[in-house]
């Protein structure tokens, strides 16, 4: 017959599946029950918003959307709010992607933002969607030589030379700004190294939270004019643009799960020290 375990031992060897279940509740409950929590805008996101706001009306920007479905929860809300801010300023957009799965996502974002239906943007005149290009850094370098050479045709097969919007734009420096929405490599790091630091084109970026700490030095050094990292960055940006969306809605779940994880870490450490004190540290 086995000896009954003490409550401390039972907690120490708790089945981790209980922790998964508690975490699931911490995520689901705030999504079901509205928990309005305060949201403060960080300087990085404020600078990003201001940099775009300072663009002259009617200028043209280059947007490289480099993410796939796994990056959607963090980046799609930013992408959507970005299109709204640019469209409200009547900024023209030339868009492409160095990630294969990003172009269909971009099309969905443009449709959801109502770029053509609500803002009256005309394809090839006010915006261009060039599609995907293989080659990573090589493609980035190639665009510096010639955008139209790198993308001979757009997403729909229209020759780039015949697209009215591209008549006066062919390299990074022709554009008022380079905007990168990135979930990894190739993305912000490669753009800063291969494009921004060489051409000096003004650049802002949004990235997943996991890459955020790697890119903050670029913002501090002025290589990025602004940076939105993760769902929190996207939520702050949505707040500034004045279009609360999925990121702001997800912040209460984000906060609840973080509080729970902090509690788990504290709990794990307390149990460890209790075990050590009783001479049974493992």
């Amino acid at each position: 017959m086995t000896a009954r375990r003490s409550w401390r031992e039972r907690l120490e060897f708790i089945d981790r599946r209980w922790l998964f279940l508690i975490l699931a509740f911490a995520i689901v409950l705030p999504l079901v029950v509205d928990l309005p929590l305060p949201l403060y805008v960080s300087p990085m996101v404020q600078d990003l918003y201001d940099a775009i706001e300072d663009l002259p009306d009617g200028s043209t920007v280059l947007i490289s959307a480099d993410y796939d479905p796994s990056g959607k929860p963090e980046l799609e809300p930013f992408h959507l709010a970005l299109i709204h801010q640019l469209a409200e300023k009547k900024v023209k957009m030339v868009m492409y992607s160095l990630w294969p799965a990003a172009t269909p996502i971009t099309e969905a974002v443009l449709a959801e933002a109502g770029l053509t239906t609500d803002y009256g943007y005309r394809k090839d005149v006010d915006y261009v969607l060039l599609g995907y290009k293989e080659g990573q850094q090589i493609a980035m370098r190639s665009i510096q030589k010639s955008l139209k050479g790198t993308f001979p045709v757009d997403r729909d097969g229209t020759p780039s030379n015949e697209i009215p919007l591209l008549q006066h734009y062919d390299t990074y420096t022709d554009f008022a700004m380079l905007i990168n929405v990135s979930a990894g490599s190739p993305g912000v790091k490669e753009y800063v190294q291969n494009v921004q630091s060489i051409t000096g084109v003004p650049m802002v970026a949004a990235c997943t939270a996991v890459s955020g700490p790697d890119y903050v030095p670029y913002y501090k050094a002025g290589q990025l004019l602004g940076l939105a990292a993760g769902m929190k960055g996207a939520a702050e940006y949505e707040k500034l643009v004045g279009r609360p969306g999925l990121a702001m809605a997800g912040m209460s779940a984000q906060s609840a799960s973080h509080i729970l994880l902090i509690a788990f870490i504290v709990f794990g450490n307390v149990m460890y020290f209790l075990a050590r004190r009783s001479g049974g540290a493992r």
């Binding site: 995520i27 939270a209 996991v210 769902m231 779940a253 984000q254 799960s257």
Partner: peptide, 26 residues
């Protein structure tokens, strides 16, 4: 401190993915 910040951001990223999938399930 730098590793801690990176880990914190990584946790935030993973939670965002979980929130995204949960939202799809809902």
């Amino acid at each position: 401190i730098s590793f801690g910040a990176s880990f914190g951001y990584t946790v935030m990223s993973r939670m965002s993915l979980a929130i995204g999938r949960t939202r799809e399930l809902m």
